[in-house]
Simulated assay, not measured.
Amino acid sequence: MNIKLIALDVDGTLVDSSHIYISERNKLALRRCAEQGIEIVLASGRPMALIEPVAKELGYVKYAISANGSAVWDRHSHERIVSREISPDIAEKILSVVLKYPIALEVYCEGRAWVDHNWTVERFEKMPQQFLQMRNEYNRHCNDLYKEVSGKTVEKFNVDGMPRVMFDEIMEQLQPIRDELAIQYIECYDNMEINNRLATKGEALKGLCTLLGVESFEVMAFGDSENDVSMLKYAGESYAMENGEQAALESAKHIAKKNTEDGIAEAIEKYLLQS
């Protein structure tokens, strides 16, 4: 199998349920791939600031895809080499709607999450507290979120703990600009994500591969969620985690063991590292 690049989702795929811990077996398998010259790429819904600790722990990651494909980062130069962000005028229209609600909104901008006083760790019931504390440390806290974000391009709007009824209300109000956006609602976390409609992990990965001279059949990808589907469909060898959402399971060519059972390592050991 002639694989030149491995693209990895982070939460639900590479890390365990803590959203922080990477198993030693996964790290070793990926290190062996990197030593063979295979590019290891992280592809996450997180902002770059929250991908960075994972990349540092692995130690051999040069490129990362952030915010569901809104940006591709070169970690060595700290530059975005591919960008598909929400324009300032559309971002301001979204803000004018969502800020009417008492929600903990994160606006991914300039590689980190910008938040206001509504964002507190106590608001999140379905996320591990240690991970929330880490998120809080990397957040940029704003006195006036609308004022400070206005005029800037936005990578992603993210809300956890949003009831379905509130999501439906917001969708109705965003209808005039709906065609400009990619919007997901993740039921298990009561989570809403809003991106530029062209921002997908698959398109970001394709853009990076074009720059690196890598063909899709030379790519292996791992993911677990709906936001991984485009990446799984692009990769020549794709794996959905056994713990993944149905959309991911139906889109991948193979099923890997759960993220809590070293699913990445087992697949890599079996198909790439056999002596």
Results as ranks from 00 to 15, higher is better:
S216M: 05
D168K: 07
R80C: 08
E215Q: 13
G213F: 03
G236L: 05
D16T: 12
I65Q: 04
T200R: 10
P102W: 08
V154I: 15
D74I: 07
K152P: 00
D228E: 05
Y239D: 00
K56D: 13
I170Y: 09
W114K: 09
N2Y: 03
Y234E: 04
L208V: 06
N26G: 08
G236F: 05
I177E: 11
L198I: 02
N136W: 03
T120M: 03
E237Y: 12
A43R: 04
E215W: 03
L205S: 07
D74A: 01
G213I: 04
E155R: 11
L174K: 08
A55F: 00
A91N: 09
R178Y: 09
R135I: 12
K100F: 03
G213W: 10
S96A: 14
P53R: 11
M220I: 03
Q184T: 15
H141M: 04
P128Q: 14
A182M: 12
E215R: 14
A235M: 02
M127K: 05
G161R: 04
T260M: 04
S225H: 12
S66G: 09
M231E: 15
F131P: 10
V214S: 01
I255W: 07
I255K: 10
A43Y: 08
E242Y: 05
E148H: 08
L273D: 06
I255F: 07
A34K: 03
L211Q: 12
I264E: 02
N118W: 03
L211R: 14
C142W: 11
C109N: 13
E193P: 10
I94M: 07
A204G: 10
I90D: 02
V229A: 09
E137Y: 08
Y108R: 05
Y185M: 11
